[in-house]
Write a protein that binds this DNA or RNA. Structure first.
Lengths: 181, 181
DNA sequence: AGCAAAACGCAACTGGTCGTTGCGTTAAGG
DNA sequence: CCTTAACGCAACGACCAGTTGCGTTTTGCT
């Protein structure tokens, strides 16, 4: 039952968005009476949060190819592919919209991201050990520089995230744009 | 009257968010009857869109210090300072949340961003002319690499956007992280 | 298997918001 | 000064959010 409700919640979130999320529709979709949802979760916020926490548990693997550039490229590719999935995209949009007014959601989201950035950061740490990157480089900052442009396009500009863009972004982070002198 | 309604719309958007935006509250706040809003704009979507277009007209200046690094830093700083303003932040969150289901909003937003990225891109074009950056560098990609991490923090991770972060991000874009050999 | 307790379905209800309508009043402008 | 557009006001039907009471099903424990 919990599974059905969560699946229905995310499906509705993807189709209608958070602003039009109706517990009655979720209940119908889940094949469940709406009183059940209210008794179990109480509020729309808690239901959505629970649904997100459920999906946030799916851990993703951190690339380890032995090459920093390949690792970052693989990271960018899987991050983009994941963020494009309707359910995931809907979650990101809901978080962006509601975080300022939903403390629990914001807190859970911050935990998720700090954990994920730390995980992905080992890509940079391994590169430091290999001597590909100077010691003292901030791993999180690097990961944010790789992921930032991707989410900028997905959430705000709406431009397509294609291979060219991903590779270009990694190139910038790897080599910078300033001429060598 | 239009001015009052737009101001009230953005204020409500900042306080309550798009998902809880009530035209009755907007009307009360603007000192106007709700029928006036419905007669003039028809739907919530059109009112919000009009309010955003009104603010999107405020053009910002593109830095031109003669140094690419200083230009990018200034760009990052002003972009962050602007995006942190409650009204602007609320607009970005609303766009992120509603774009998939509001074609007009999405289209207007895409125009806004393509224009803005093109404007900021001249920073890179000037740097190319000065020989600071190799010819063939994609100006838009560079700007997105600078702005992406900022909006990632503001919209998703929730981490503070401080001077260290802004400078670190510009450093990555300028010099890259790979060791020189 | 039997039984107590929890979970669920169902129907009904209150209250609030949406969006609309009709009508009277104010403001604009030629 | 007078036509016309814009606004205020009150009321309305429709819908959805949550809540409640009660009967039914399922769970889980012995």
């Amino acid at each position: 039952m919990r599974t059905d409700a969560i699946a229905a919640t995310l499906a509705e979130l993807a189709e209608r968005g958070y602003s039009a999320l109706s517990l009655e529709r979720v209940a119908r979709r889940a094949g469940v009476n709406k009183t059940t949802l209210y008794r179990r979760w109480g509020t729309r916020e808690k239901l959505v949060l629970d649904a997100m926490l459920d999906r946030a548990g799916e851990q993703i693997s951190v690339p380890d190819t032995g090459s920093l550039r390949d690792d970052l490229l693989e990271l960018a590719r899987t991050a983009a592919a994941n963020a494009v999935r309707p359910e995931v995209a809907a979650m990101a949009r809901a978080v962006a919209a509601e975080s300022p007014r939903d403390g629990r959601l914001a807190a859970a989201n911050r935990r998720f991201w700090s954990e994920r950035l730390a995980l992905d950061g080992v890509i940079v740490e391994r590169a430091i050990e290999r001597g590909e990157v100077p010691a003292g480089t901030d791993p999180t900052q690097v990961i944010e520089s790789v992921l930032g442009p991707i989410h900028l396009r997905l959430l705000l500009t709406g431009e397509p995230v294609d291979r060219r863009f991903l590779e270009g972004g990694v190139d910038v982070v790897m080599d910078g744009i300033a001429v060598r002198r």
